[in-house]
C-alpha cells in the first residue's frame, strides 16, 4: 500500500484529479466530509489530506511514502526528500513586492516582511544586502502599508491582492509549482510502486 499526502484545498483537488487520471483513483475522496484518510485497496493507494505546509513533513518522516508539496515549502524548509517531478500545476512565483514607486536607497537595513524567512535571507544574501526579517503568518501585504516593513517577500499568483493594496512586484525570486516528493527510505522498498505513480502522472501531464 502506497501512502500519499495531498495538500488540502484547491491545489490538492487539482492534483488528486491528476492521480485519478493516472489510474490511482479513490472513490469518496472528493465527497464533502470531515474524513481525512481514504483508501483504495484495489489500487493499493491510501490518500491523506494534510495542511499544505505539512505535506513535506509527513513525507520526510515516512508517515507518507510520497506526497505533493509546493516548491515554496521545499525551498523554505529544505526537507530531506526526493523531488521526483514538477507537476506543473499550482503555478505562481515567489516575489519581492513594495508600495508603488518605492525605491531602495541601498543604505539602510532593508525591512522585509514575510512568511518565508529562509528564502528571503538567501535571496538578499546573494545580493549582498543586509535585511531585517519580520516574520508574519498572514496578511503580509499590510506590512508596508502600515510602515512595518519596506518590502514583502511572498507568493504572487495573479497579482490582484497586490494591486488592490497599491503594491507592485519589484523582482521575481523564483517560479513555484507543485512537486511530487518521495521519502528516501520508501523509495528503496517501494520503488516500483512509486515509479508507476510517477510515470502515470508524467503521462497525465503530457496528455
Amino acid at each position: 500500500m502506497l501512502n500519499i499526502a495531498l495538500p488540502k484545498g484547491r491545489l490538492g483537488e487539482k492534483v488528486y484529479a491528476m492521480f485519478a487520471r493516472a489510474g490511482f483513483d479513490c472513490p469518496g475522496i472528493l465527497e464533502d466530509s470531515r474524513k481525512l484518510v481514504f483508501e483504495n485497496p484495489e489500487k493499493q493507494v491510501r490518500y491523506f489530506w494534510v495542511k499544505p505546509s505539512d505535506s513535506a513533513i509527513y513525507v520526510e518522516r515516512g508517515a507518507a511514502d510520497i506526497g505533493v508539496a509546493g516548491k515554496d515549502i521545499l525551498l523554505e524548509y529544505r526537507p530531506d526528500v526526493y523531488e521526483l517531478s514538477d507537476l506543473e500545476t499550482g503555478k505562481c512565483r515567489m516575489a519581492v513586492a513594495a508600495p508603488k514607486g518605492w525605491r531602495d536607497d541601498g543604505i539602510r537595513t532593508l525591512r522585509v516582511a514575510t512568511k518565508f524567512a529562509f528564502i528571503a535571507r538567501e535571496y538578499y544574501a546573494s545580493q549582498g544586502r543586509d535585511i531585517d526579517v519580520i516574520h508574519l503568518n498572514g496578511s503580509i501585504e499590510i506590512a508596508p502599508i502600515l510602515g512595518l516593513s519596506d518590502v514583502i517577500v511572498d507568493i504572487v499568483e495573479t497579482g490582484t491582492t497586490l494591486r488592490e493594496n497599491d503594491l507592485e512586484v519589484i523582482s521575481t525570486i523564483t517560479e513555484i509549482s507543485a512537486r511530487l516528493i518521495c521519502n528516501k527510505a520508501s523509495f528503496r522498498f517501494k520503488q516500483q510502486e512509486i515509479m508507476r505513480v510517477a510515470e502515470g502522472l508524467k503521462r497525465t501531464k503530457e496528455g
Binding site: E60, R61, G62, D80, K184, A185, S186, R188, F189
Partner: peptide, 9 residues
Amino acid sequence: GYIEGVSQS
C-alpha cells in the same frame, strides 16, 4: 543504508 520501517538512512 536503509532498513524497512525506518524513515531515514
